[in-house]
């Protein structure tokens, strides 16, 4: 039927299974994110640390090239531990910036004109909706973080041989667990903030505030009390310590690693509570 005939009819074709409806939320949110060319360019830049890491690992195993640039074959051997930890940081930081840029658009646009009631009047639940939006961040951040990290780790293990991969399994595990934990924490946190603060610049400011100002506040508590109690609200230190503990290196502060895990889990729980309170089809005044 021609679309201009102004006749309404029922739809009798196939339907997407109910369990896949949340994927529609993800699909449209991803398309929205990449509709900005500036963001697309920034995202490509965020892949740079991984590309550099791959190049350095390749370089360290290419004697001819090393000699040409005036380095020795000890180049990679001397960098191993520091290199991977440094690379982790340079993957996690851009991931945070990507989350800060994308997240405020994910939920605030739906909330500001009550579109959530339209989503939830269809066969998707609030949980589906949040998972659909979180999947956007997971899809965007994974190539920058753990996928890139594992790629470098596997490349190094392949080129090095001699059971290097098995002997250094902690590096691969740190990339996987550390980055996935980081993605979950910042995804939930940024979505929760964007649900409560609908003005995008304010939401972005709030996210920076929570990460960096809270870190400063935590340091101040540590300095005043001469303990590591402030680390309980120090998100970046918590994730750093979790990763360092998996790497097998020394951690910062005196708190046992379980407390750092507690900080991350508590942040997730608080974010879920904030989303639960705010993501409703309609405000309920009790």
């Amino acid at each position: 039927m021609a679309v201009y005939e102004r006749i309404w009819r029922r739809y009798d074709g196939n339907l997407l299974p109910l369990k896949w409806r949340a994927a529609v939320v993800t699909k449209y949110a991803l398309a929205e994110a990449f509709s900005s060319r500036i963001f697309a360019a920034f995202y490509v830049l965020c892949l740079l640390p991984t590309a550099i890491g791959v190049f350095l690992v390749y370089l360290s195993h290419n004697v001819g090239l090393l000699q040409k640039v005036g380095l020795t074959t000890e180049f990679m051997g001397g960098l191993t531990a520091v290199f991977f930890q440094f690379l982790f940081l340079w993957q996690a930081l851009p991931a945070f910036f990507v989350a800060v840029i994308v997240s405020p658009s994910l939920i605030a646009a739906d909330l500001s004109n009550n579109a959530l009631s339209l989503y939830l009047s269809r066969p998707i639940t609030r949980r589906d909706y949040v998972l659909g939006k979180m999947a956007v961040l997971a899809i965007l951040l994974s190539p920058i973080t753990w996928m890139g990290g594992l790629l470098i780790f596997l490349l190094q293990a392949y080129l090095e041989g001699n059971n290097w991969g098995i002997e250094n399994w902690r590096i691969g595990m740190a990339y996987l667990v550390g980055h996935v934990a980081w993605i979950v924490v910042i995804s939930l946190l940024t979505l929760a903030i964007s649900a409560w603060v609908r003005f995008k610049p304010a939401a972005r400011g709030a996210l920076f505030g929570i990460i960096f100002i809270l870190a400063g506040f935590a340091e101040a508590i540590n300095a005043v009390t001469r303990t590591s109690a402030g680390d309980l609200i120090h998100l970046t230190r918590a994730i750093a310590n979790v990763v360092l503990s998996i790497f097998g290196g020394p951690t910062e502060g005196d708190l046992p690693i379980a407390f750092n895990w507690f900080t991350l889990i508590a942040t997730c729980a608080l974010s879920i509570w904030m989303l639960h309170r705010k993501l409703r089809a309609h405000e309920v005044v009790e």
């Binding site: 739809y11 529609v24 066969p123």
Partner: peptide, 13 residues
């Protein structure tokens, strides 16, 4: 179209 897909219609439909 977004609302139609959320209701289960394939993208083209």
């Amino acid at each position: 179209r977004l609302m139609a897909e959320l209701s289960g219609l394939p993208s083209e439909a």
